[in-house]
Design a binder for these strands. Structure first.
Lengths: 115, 115
DNA sequence: TACTGATATCGTGATTCGGTAATATTTTCT
DNA sequence: AGAAAATATTACCGAATCACGATATCAGTA
């Protein structure tokens, strides 16, 4: 009784982990870059202004999670979103933000903007 | 040059913050509860097995962010999702998970399941 | 007013996560 | 083979966040 919603605990942990993939400004910046098409690591570094190890780390993370795919092209590695739903999630988040932005901004429960 | 993707940094931070609202197993459990309709705090506590202060905290967080709304009914407070897009995001995440679950599970960059 | 049930708030300990710096690895070119 | 460019890996530190327990607040009722 009590315990356990319709979805088992493991599935929830997994979904939370998926959302965490999107819950970081650096990773979001990288995903935004990739929304417009495939990019090499160097391009992402230039476009985002993030450090190279940082980008590489996050790309690895996104790759582990299956959110992006990659091909080696010569000495470059080209990344792209692995599924249209990744872009769809980002788009939906934007729509939602258009309505609740102020609330999210003011919420003091966790990290303030400007990292 | 370099710096700044199409979306300004603030917007990214904000979007990251929004996703963080979804990036916790407890909050997800609560949101799942609310997907099926309005619930009082006590009902959510019973359905999720989480402690009452914990539920109350997370509900406050979700409310601050504008993801849920609430009405007082006698000595109960009834919460519900504030926008169908919240449910849509959860649904999309489920679809995406169906394809990348293994990757997410194996990704060791951050939190393992079983909290 | 005193009492009970429902929900909110606060302080704290423990854990987790992200950025940076230094370095390793891989690939191409000469 | 040797060098240079592109990308990946590792370790460490600081900051942020979650759960828990105790307690406060608020609404209804006797």
């Amino acid at each position: 009784m009590a315990v356990l919603a319709p979805t088992p605990a493991d599935a929830l942990a997994l979904k939370a982990k998926l959302f965490r993939g999107f819950a970081d400004p650096s990773r979001l910046a990288i995903l935004e870059c990739l929304r417009e098409g495939p990019r090499t690591v160097g391009e992402v570094v230039r476009l985002t202004g993030l450090s190279q190890p940082n980008v590489s780390n996050h790309l690895q993370c996104l790759w582990d999670c299956g959110l992006v795919q990659r091909h080696r092209q010569g000495r470059f590695v080209r990344y792209h979103l692995s599924d249209p739903r990744v872009a769809a999630l980002l788009a939906l988040a934007n729509q939602l933000l258009a309505e609740v932005a102020r609330g999210v901004y003011q919420c003091t429960r966790y990290a303030d903007a400007q990292r």
